[in-house]
Design a protein around this nucleic acid. Sequence first.
DNA 1: TTATCATATGAACGGTTGCTCATATGTTCA
DNA 2: TGAACATATGAGCAACCGTTCATATGATAA
Lengths: 109, 109
Amino acid sequence: MPHNHDALLEHVKADMPADELLQDLGDLFKIFGDTTRIKIMYALYEDEMCVCAIADLLGMTQSAISHQLKVLKAANLVESRRDGKTIYYRLADEHVKSIIAQGYEHLTE
Amino acid sequence: MPHNHDALLEHVKADMPADELLQDLGDLFKIFGDTTRIKIMYALYEDEMCVCAIADLLGMTQSAISHQLKVLKAANLVESRRDGKTIYYRLADEHVKSIIAQGYEHLTE
DNA sequence: TTATCATATGAACGGTTGCTCATATGTTCA
DNA sequence: TGAACATATGAGCAACCGTTCATATGATAA
């Protein structure tokens, strides 16, 4: 007879966040789970930057960077402003830095 | 003539972590970027749990959970101990909680 | 308006990933 | 030892994802 843990499950289940939130959490971290996007966020750590500067910095296509910036913007991780032909991107809030910082700590300890 | 930002690039490049670390960061967050793994980590938030209990909790196959636990263990996010036939998993350190907490904050503010 | 720069976007292709299924390993107990 | 339970693992497949390529949009200046 398989062993039983209904009591434990009852307890743990009660403390679990809603499925939708867990899904959203996964989706959020998925965005951090790509080196290109991590690099973009690090590039914006101190100051805003235009798309072609980021592309130059990472040695990648302007198109590739644009696609990724769109993903980051959809997740409210970056914001942008236009100045003539140029569009400058910046980090949207401090969570970006603190999430990366926590990951960094896990790796370097 | 395309506009120039060599000076900016020079400065930002100097502050960027090594490529290998950025890669590792991406790989780490990739692991958080899956709902099943997020659920497993949340299940272990307060106490250790055996594999079949996690499978029951999430309504998933034992095999699927085992595969994911292997991924989590390889990234030092969970640890395990054996007690007879049963193997209990627990969170490896506090970073797991704080990383998830930061993501949670970003979503709920 | 036309040419050029800066960025955005859609389609498509190749690589990755998470699950299933079958099976193997390891442990306990009769 | 053999049967049952608990977990691990390898192969295979469908779905997802990041890039490239071609092209579209938007802005400026001549």
